[in-house]
């Protein structure tokens, strides 16, 4: 199934900004992070369909997953 992955800030470095990926049924957000070599504790925001999700969220066909690092300075 096809999903769209959008990366932000540091996560774009040596990766991509937006990419479509063909992933297996049952793929979770954690699986995607692992495949992209993104360390879970580095993640600040995970959005699927515009809402924060946890890493155990199972993705479905057509999902757009946006991944942001922790950016919390002021």
């Amino acid at each position: 199934m096809l999903i769209t992955i959008k990366l932000f800030a540091t996560f774009r470095q040596d990766r991509f900004r937006v990419a479509e990926r063909d992933v297996a049924e049952g793929t979770t957000v954690a699986d995607v992070l692992r495949a992209l070599d993104i360390d879970e504790p580095e993640v600040g925001m995970l959005f699927v369909r515009g809402r924060h999700v946890e890493t155990d969220r199972v993705l479905v066909e057509g999902d757009a997953l946006a991944i942001f690092p922790l950016v919390g300075g002021g």
Partner: peptide, 10 residues
């Protein structure tokens, strides 16, 4: 509410 770091912000 906003956050910033390095070259980025929200």
């Amino acid at each position: 509410t906003a956050g910033v770091q390095e070259f980025w912000g929200w």
